[in-house]
Write a protein that binds this DNA or RNA. Structure first.
Lengths: 137, 137
DNA sequence: CTATTAATAGATATACAAGTCTATTGAAAT
DNA sequence: ATTTCAATAGACTTGTATATCTATTAATAG
């Protein structure tokens, strides 16, 4: 049913439906989804019966892929002091400690894929059913 | 010299000096330092020759202590969807995955103390000397 | 064709963390 | 005593991510 979210690629889910299910404002969601479309992880179809549909194997899509597609770049993230010239060669006092955290984050983002999410959420087949069971929002 | 930052508790360092060394605006820094004073990690002295001086063993002070003193509360941090009712018993779809990241962060913050920072930064004795060597800002 | 559904684009608004400014209080030096 | 230095308090401003609104474009159904 809800192709994108359950990762069963049958028919598209609209941004408004997705918005209902996730609690994310639909227009805001659309903007993000557009980026996913541009990155090639999702296809979109306009008009009646249209919506978004996943176009990649969930196992192949990591959190980091999504973040990157949304414009996130780990290398651009400043250290806590916000120094421009804080590199490995010319580090700020917190750099080595900070790097540990960055590494942990990277590890998490690069090694978590959307099949992990599906499995670990217990959301195996149908988000709408899962949603009701959890009595959300 | 720079008691707070080098963790040698001899004489106080002023917020303006700290601001110079760290690149953090002095008044903004003051606000944060006030919270450290309130938490009992730092003493402050007004007037001529005054400033801030660390009042706790650096090994005993963790990143998490500082974050907590600054008002951060891990338990208040919402999941990505921002649902109010997202608890372990009633999780959002990303909850288990998100929890992994939280756990990694917690581990980092609770198990990193200010002696670790000093050692790992290579900033063993004197921040000002270290600062010059690194030609910062 | 026409009506309807839904993505897309871009301008605009809101909320809140980050940062600044001004004035006050307190402590030390002369 | 008076001056100077520095923390403190709190009002105010700024910047930016988050969100909303309006209009347009595209696709399908009847």
């Amino acid at each position: 049913m809800t192709g994108l979210v359950t990762f069963q690629q049958d028919e598209p889910i609209s941004s408004s439906r997705l918005a209902e299910l996730t609690g994310v404002p639909s227009h805001y969601l659309s903007k993000i989804m557009r980026k996913m479309v541009e990155a090639g992880y999702v296809n979109s179809r306009k008009g009646h019966g249209g919506g978004f549909i996943m176009s990649i194997d969930p196992e192949k899509l990591t959190i980091m892929d999504v973040l990157t597609a949304a414009g996130f770049d780990m290398d651009e993230q400043p250290c806590v002091f916000g120094w421009d010239e804080c590199k490995n060669e010319n580090p700020c006092p917190l750099h080595p400690i900070w790097k540990r955290l960055k590494d942990a984050f990277n590890d998490w983002a690069c090694n978590t894929n959307f099949d992990d999410i599906r499995r670990e959420s217990g959301m195996v087949d149908d988000l709408e059913k899962w949603n009701q069971n959890q009595s959300l929002r």
